[in-house]
């Protein structure tokens, strides 16, 4: 049952790339889907975005964050389970001029997948990828440049590409009257909230990934509940992408903090065992 890791490489000082055999997922993946990983037999069920799915393999970008991701980076050459594709794919159709934006690991993976699907559907796709500095920019081969029509690489300190966060550049674009029909974005939750605040004034539909802690990822536990337009929705089956203008952001920003203490314990233990 094990899924073999066929490629692993550093993307920057924090993130790495993993390609793994998962034929069923690869065959059925659609932009907006995610997978659930169980890396080791006693592991957690960890949701992960997919960058691309080809030849029976899927590629992911993963941040070295806690126990699971560090152990995966340092010690594993296979996964116990790769489950999916889960979640609702986006509605891939012709919208017109589409922006896809990201500023963090999970967002960057989706950026590629979303651009590719939306471009194939005949949209004019403008991709933004923001990194902190030139050193932290991912290798060219995994950026969304080849799968979009207009590419904006930005660094927050201006050391490579355009200077600033995609939020700044997008704001200028909107101010200058450039027409955008819809925006898809993923990455840092606080920034996605800000994006929603910005685009609301311009009335641009804005669909963002609301990354929440998940357990079963199939609608059975309620851990991933988000409140959209006052209604309870489950990120794992109704999402993970929702309308940024309708999300209860306070709750969504708070939930991922549930296990901060325990995560530290798990990581420290794994480090002591020499696996992280």
């Amino acid at each position: 049952m094990a899924h073999k890791i066929t490629r692993k490489m550093d993307l920057n000082s924090e993130d790495f790339y993993v390609e793994v055999e998962a034929p069923l997922v690869a065959e059925r993946f659609r932009a907006g889907n995610f997978v659930v990983l169980i890396t080791v037999p006693h592991g957690e069920r960890i949701p992960m975005s997919i960058m691309k799915a080809e030849d029976g393999k899927i590629s992911m970008f993963i941040k070295k964050l806690g126990k699971t991701s560090w152990e995966l980076y340092k010690s594993l050459d296979q996964f116990e389970h790769v489950i999916g594709p889960m979640g609702k794919p986006i509605d891939v159709k012709k919208y017109g001029r589409v922006v896809v934006a990201s500023d963090l690991v999970c967002g960057h993976a989706e950026n590629y997948a979303l651009c590719k699907a939306l471009k194939e559907a005949g949209n004019y796709v403008i991709s933004f990828q923001t990194f902190p500095t030139a050193e932290e920019v991912y290798p060219e081969e995994v950026l969304a440049r080849p799968v979009c029509d207009e590419y904006h690489l930005t660094t927050e300190d201006g050391s490579k590409g355009e200077e600033g966060h995609y939020l700044d550049i997008l704001e200028e674009m909107l101010e200058s009257g450039e027409k955008i029909d819809i925006i898809f974005a993923g990455g840092s939750l606080p920034n996605l909230k800000e994006l929603g605040d910005l685009t609301k004034d311009y009335n641009i539909p804005t669909i963002v990934t609301v990354r929440q802690i998940m357990v079963d990822a199939s609608g059975m536990c309620g851990a991933c509940r988000v409140f959209v337009d006052g209604e309870m929705q489950l990120a794992c089956i109704d999402g993970p992408m929702f309308d940024a203008h309708k999300i209860d952001w306070d709750a969504a920003l708070r939930r991922p903090m549930m296990y901060v203490e325990q995560e530290k314990i798990a990581y420290e233990r794994c480090k002591k065992l020499g696996r992280c």
């Binding site: 069920r45 708070r254 798990a266």
Partner: peptide, 28 residues
Amino acid sequence: KLNGVYSANEFLIRANLMKAYLFPEWDT
């Protein structure tokens, strides 16, 4: 919406299926 509010399903899935009672030997 507060943290610390569980559905019994989530609580029991964590505890039973994911063996959270064996944390940190088990990851959940």
